[in-house]
Amino acid sequence: MATEVTEQPVQQDSGVRYAARLDQVSKSFGRPGTQQHVLDGITLDVAPGEFVCLLGASGCGKSTLLNLVAGLDRPSSGSIQTPGGRPALMFQEHALFPWLTAGRNIELALRLRGVPRAERRERAEGLLELVRLKGAHGKRVHELSGGMRQRVAMARALAQDSQLLLMDEPFAALDAITRDVLHEELTRIWAETGVSVLFVTHNVREAVRLGQRVILLSSRPGRIAREWTVDIPQPRRIEDAAVADLSVEITEQLRGEIRRHGQH
């Protein structure tokens, strides 16, 4: 499945052909004997500027995989390379700090990355404008709606200026209309910034709506079961017939994967 397998070294000024490279990544938890294999031999490249969706039922280790790529946890075996530095990560919960204003949340990310004080304010304003929240700099987190919070979280993630944005079901807790709007925003921001996105979801339509590639993980242990290239042109809409057709096909496969677990 992996495309563009290159033997070139990772640190290359212009010739890095991937934003993330996972090579035979496995992860198990627990002690030997009672070990639980969560991920097994995941090999995957995310090309620069690519939008990849990881799809799977619960227990497929999607979130574990993102934690590994984010560097919050180490793989039991295999290697993960993210040549663009530490990836940015967005969670299902906004995870904004309630003791800071929306703008200050973004500025903290800038500060921790070493952006000088004088530039922070302006850059935070710029990022807020990018997520269409101009004027929300001084707002407290609790004064924002769910959709606005996720957009601030997106701005904070983008403040890391990472070449890779990891998203862990970031819209799962939102209502359908807000989610739909955020899909459009994410597509727009992805196109504007050229960031690579690795997007985890259990929602098939969401994956097809957003991704250039959809990768289906099997469960327990998580392995790559199948992969689809989505060549429906953007802008897509979640209700498009083409999105629906591919979703039906993928859902069939996903159901098959889930069904296997009932048989033994």
Partner: peptide, 23 residues
């Protein structure tokens, strides 16, 4: 979740204590 979010934006070690844990 705050600690994880802090770590992903680079608030680790003493900076994590100062910018995330204590507040």
């Amino acid at each position: 979740l705050f600690l994880r979010a802090g770590r992903t934006i680079g608030a680790t070690g003493p900076r994590g204590v100062r910018h995330v844990l204590l507040p």
